[in-house]
Amino acid sequence: MEIVKSKPSSKLSTKSKIEKITPYLYLVPSVILVVIFCIYSDFFSLIVSFTEWDGLNEMKFIGFQNYITMFQDPNFLLSSLNTLIWVVGTLLIPVTIALIFAIAITHVKTQSFFKTVFYLPNALSQTIAGIILTTMLSTYGIPHLLEVMGFESLAKDWLTVPYVNTLIMVVSSGWQGIGLNLILFIVGLNQIPKEPIEAAIMEGAKGIRLYTRVVLPLLKPIMLIVLLMSLVNSFKSFDTIWVMTNGGPFRTSETLAVTMYKEAFVHNQLGYGSAIAMLLSVTVLIISWFLLRDTFKGEE
């Protein structure tokens, strides 16, 4: 792989020394920025997570206290539960439904039309999708429609109803986020070689059996990537919740990412916030490890 430079190695003049160092200069800007913003931050967060710190006074080292407090903090426990709901919801909508849609789309003639429609919400950010769906769900929107249709008991501001609002937000974020997974699935389905499928059809496999026995196993590599990517993202859900409910009412719809932000920047508990960030990171890292292992398979 390496390009061997033909250089006289006998004399180690300053010139050849400079030549040896120059290639490393290409790395300097990237390395400096990443070290300052990412790697320094990782270590800083790790250290702060073992302290009690409001950001103004001296840091006080308290060992694992933040991590112990966490599991006695009802807000944190509820937030963890909500995060799990987000994870399961993500597996259902942007993964499972995307797969079903993708399979259906490969069976119809107007593939690109359907692809475009389902991918369209991806042109919006999560923040914007959140704003649009919040207004749709506000007093004069869908609740009003339900009232007109005669379902008066259903006509309420659903985003202010604890627990129900989390489900609504999971669906909303699914509306926005299904597109990319769908496209990846369709690309994967179209890339599957025809021969094994034709052979299976010849042997009489059809319908759902054809998919569970033949097609889906062939789609496994892409399914794995989509699954892991979606899992990682669902653990970090923040934007949708921040705009749609702000974690409320009474902190009932927070996820770990929102709780972390609030503890650190609203309640000035930087130590506790860092501890939550650490926990979130470790969880995400464990999942990412599987993703990375696959990405770099065969390299070194």
Binding site: L27, S30, V31, V34, V35, F37, C38, I39, Y40, S41, D42, F44, S45, V48, G55, V232, F235, K236, F238, A257, M260, Y261, A264, F265, L270, G273, S274, I276, A277, M278, L280, S281, V284, L285, S288, L292, E299, E300
Partner: peptide, 25 residues
Amino acid sequence: MFWFMLIYSGTIFPFQMYIIPIFRM
């Protein structure tokens, strides 16, 4: 590989890890 992983590691952690340190800095 070391240099690559050093820089690439920036995508591995969730951004929640970065906001407190960068805010302080």
